[in-house]
Amino acid sequence: MDTIPRSAGIGLLVYAVGTTVGFAGAGGPGGDYEPDIVAGYVDPSHYATSLGFWYLGALAALGLLAFGHGLRRLGGVVGETAWGLSVAGAAISVVGAFVGGGLVVALAEGGDAVRQGVPHPVIYTISEIGNLLALCGPAFFVGVVAIVLAARAGLSRWLAVFSVVAGLCGILLPFYFTIPVYLVWALVFGGRLARGSRRTEGADVVLSTTPA
């Protein structure tokens, strides 16, 4: 019987909650270009808060290492694929957090010369790139993991279908409207692993758990 430590579920939950809160709290401009939002973002009054949330997001992304390491217990192609994709997801999310946070640092350290000299559309562009890397980049990799698990890990039928749908939503996260489905899956799947749920009937690989 293949076992997955509860720490894998905890890691997925930390990633899902922490990166989402970090992204939302940092408030980097994205989506439709709105001059007022960008103008507010270059205001020094929010720099410390924004940078703190970017750090939160970067740290939370490391939860994917625990998630992938736990799934590696499945062994074979499934385990190694899940581990590799999870490492890639953590790395790209940290890079994104430092792109977004680096923009804040540049604004703070550059002073008025940077705040007034860099056009707002450029600020928006850099911020949007950071957002995509921090939030959508890891979702792409975790979405693929979800589909691999649905196909090869012997999940119950409802969870396998949910994982395929959520995996596609993760891959398509740059469209943003898919975020709720993807996040609900991460919370459900992470919660099941963290809780130590198991299924034994009709599975090629059983997703049971061992203590973290």
Rank of each mutant, 00 (worst) to 15 (best):
V205P: 00
V165K: 06
L172M: 12
A139Q: 07
A153L: 10
F189K: 11
G202C: 06
P121M: 04
V122T: 14
D204C: 09
A166G: 03
I126F: 08
L133T: 11
V181Y: 05
A186P: 08
A146N: 13
L173M: 15
V144A: 04
E128P: 06
R198Q: 13
R198V: 13
L173V: 00
A139T: 04
L133Q: 05
V122H: 02
L155T: 01
V206R: 14
P138V: 01
F177T: 11
A166P: 12
L155I: 02
A134T: 11
T178D: 03
G202L: 13
V205T: 11
P121G: 05
F140W: 00
W185D: 02
P174G: 03
L132N: 11
T200V: 14
L187G: 09
I179H: 14
A166Q: 02
V161M: 04
A151N: 02
A186L: 11
A160W: 09
A186Q: 10
I147E: 02
L173T: 10
L168Q: 01
L135G: 08
D204S: 15
P121A: 08
V188D: 00
V206S: 15
S197G: 00
L135R: 13
V184S: 04
C136M: 08
Y176N: 13
S156D: 13
V144G: 06
G167R: 02
V148Q: 08
L168P: 02
F141P: 01
V184L: 13
R199Q: 12
D204Y: 07
A194F: 01
R157G: 05
L187F: 12
E128F: 11
L173W: 02
V148W: 12
V145H: 01
A146P: 01
G190I: 06
A203R: 12
V206E: 15
L159G: 09
V164W: 05
F177M: 07
S127R: 00
P180D: 04
V205Y: 06
G170H: 02
R157C: 04
A194D: 05
G202A: 14
V161P: 03
L193Y: 08
R157K: 11
I129E: 00
C136Y: 03
A146D: 09
P138Y: 01
I129T: 12
L183M: 12
F140E: 01
L172K: 03
Y182K: 02
L135C: 05
A134D: 06
G202H: 15
W185Y: 10
I179P: 00
G143Y: 03
F141V: 07
D204M: 10
Y176A: 14
V206D: 05
F141R: 10
N131T: 12
F175P: 03
R198C: 12
G167M: 09
G191K: 05
L159I: 09
L132R: 14
W158S: 15
R195P: 00
A186C: 15
G190R: 05
